[in-house]
Nucleic acid binder design. Structure first.
Length: 413
RNA sequence: CGGAGUGUAGUAUAGUGGUAGUAUAAAUGCUUUGGGAGCAUUAGGUCCGAGUUCGAUUCUCGGCACUCCGACCA
């Protein structure tokens, strides 16, 4: 993409109403726009990052049998009354609104009821199970106080998968697969090394749920990590009994701050019972469907990646989620060869891979922009480099500069 | 929801009971071109409402918004 086509532009200064590093840098780079506290629009560059993350998650969910669909955002009061979660005294962060005819609807803050209600209509037999539907959707939570930029918003985009299994045994097999798929996702988006599977409170049907906690000072959760096994315990269940049951040693655990980038949870029959979601087994007997939930907040993940890798010059994207792999910087010159070379490289690498800074700006400003925007590689085309017959390529993360030939450039794609 | 604070141009900030200033971004022209260039010209602003006052951006009250600390985060 040509940078001149982007209506967004970079800012020199951070907005005064953001203190979170992720929001400051993403606003400065023109990735996001703040609509109100806890509510952000995703600008063209920001959406590209979200889409890259979304595709990685989609691939991993599909690989364990997930089937993508879309549940509605407007939710029927009746189905939430079945689980007693319509009541504001039970769930205090609903966004609710009214239909013209006076009826009430809610904006979904989670998906268990919607899925249980839908599956109720289709699941009758053991032959219909298991089922692993999931969706990417906007979620609304009327938080009294939002903070941390896009890490905790009132409106956010998440992936939620629900597993509907015949019994606990079948559930457990899938649960373990999901755990591995989650680890792959965090590995692929570049935060695997800082992300710990964390034991957290489990609710009615299992001792623990599992969170995926990424270590960063921007985190709001306190966890105790075991560096060797890459396992952690959330503060909420941190006690001697738990430590022992996990085979960990208290003195080896270190207290850290983390962001919960994902979680997986055994729900059991907590939601299937109120919906009477059961099936006939092979003997013709009724059995309750056994459920699990698996969530990842995409905006939160994006914000966490920014927090984790940004340096004093700006954002540093891991290659897998960068909006473009390359920033192409053409240093203005009177010699037409410079522009010609830049255009040639742009075409060669493809507009999907390159953000081409074709604006009429000075070199310093283009370098600063490229550093702020954080593409993994910067290719610099100038009179000097053309004269040497080589191309200059700089690694955003390490700052390393290499002089390479045009042929070598091709290999980078 | 409890506590504290802040609202001035697109952005970041200064200042004042009496014509609102600077930087940056923007527009035009000329010069310039390897780490956020220079000169000139132009355009652009006091969150909303009420009160006090001859006069309010400034003081008072109310509202709204935003930020921070705490609580909450199913």
């Amino acid at each position: 993409m040509r940078q001149s086509q982007l209506f967004t532009k970079t800012r020199r200064e951070a907005p005064s109403d953001e203190t979170a590093k992720n929001a400051q840098l993403l606003v400065r780079g023109g990735y996001i726009h703040k609509e109100m506290a806890g509510v952000y629009s995703y600008l063209p560059l920001g959406l590209k990052v979200i889409k890259k993350i979304e595709n990685i998650i989609r691939e991993e969910m599909n690989s364990i049998g997930g089937i993508e669909m879309k549940t509605s955002i407007l939710q029927n009061k009746e189905i939430w009354e079945k689980t007693n979660r319509w009541d504001d005294n039970v769930v205090d962060n609903w966004f609710k609104t009214k239909l013209k005819n006076g009826g009430e609807v809610g904006l979904s803050f989670t998906n268990e009821e919607a899925y249980s209600n839908i599956l109720k209509q289709y699941v009758n037999s053991y032959k219909d199970l298991p089922a692993y539907p999931y969706d990417f959707k906007e979620i609304f939570r009327n938080e009294v106080r939002s903070k941390s930029g896009i890490i905790r918003g009132r409106e956010f985009y998440w992936k939620a998968l629900y597993s509907f299994s015949k019994d606990e045994e079948e559930h457990n097999v899938f649960y373990e697969k999901a755990k591995i798929a989650y680890q792959k996702i965090f590995e692929r988006v570049g935060i695997g090394g800082s992300t710990y599977i964390t034991f957290s409170s489990g609710g009615t049907f299992s001792k623990f749920s599992h969170e995926f906690q990424t270590l960063t000072e921007a985190g709001e959760d306190i966890i105790y990590i075991d560096e060797k096994s890459k396992v952690a315990i959330n503060k909420e269940v941190f006690n001697d009994e738990v430590i022992e049951s996990l085979g960990l040693k208290k003195e080896k655990l270190v207290e850290k701050k983390g962001v919960e980038v994902g979680n997986i949870f055994t729900l059991g029959t907590k939601f299937s019972e109120p919906f009477n979601l059961k099936y006939k087994n092979e003997k013709g007997e009724d059995e309750m469907v056994f459920m699990g939930s698996y969530g990842i907040g995409l905006g939160r993940l994006m914000g966490t990646i920014v927090e984790l890798f940004a340096d004093d010059k700006g954002i540093v994207w891991p290659e897998a989620v960068a909006p473009f792999k390359f920033s192409l910087i053409e240093i203005a010159s009177e010699k037409p060869e410079v522009k010609e070379m830049a255009e040639k490289i742009y075409k060669k690498l493809g507009e999907a891979n390159v953000l081409y800074d074709d604006k009429d700006l000075r070199a310093g400003e283009k370098f600063a922009d490229a550093d702020l925007l954080g593409m993994p590689y910067q290719i610099i085309v100038s009179e000097k480099n053309i004269a040497s017959g080589k191309l200059e390529i700089k690694n955003r993360k390490t700052g390393e500069i290499k002089m390479i030939s045009e042929d070598e450039l091709q290999n980078l794609c």
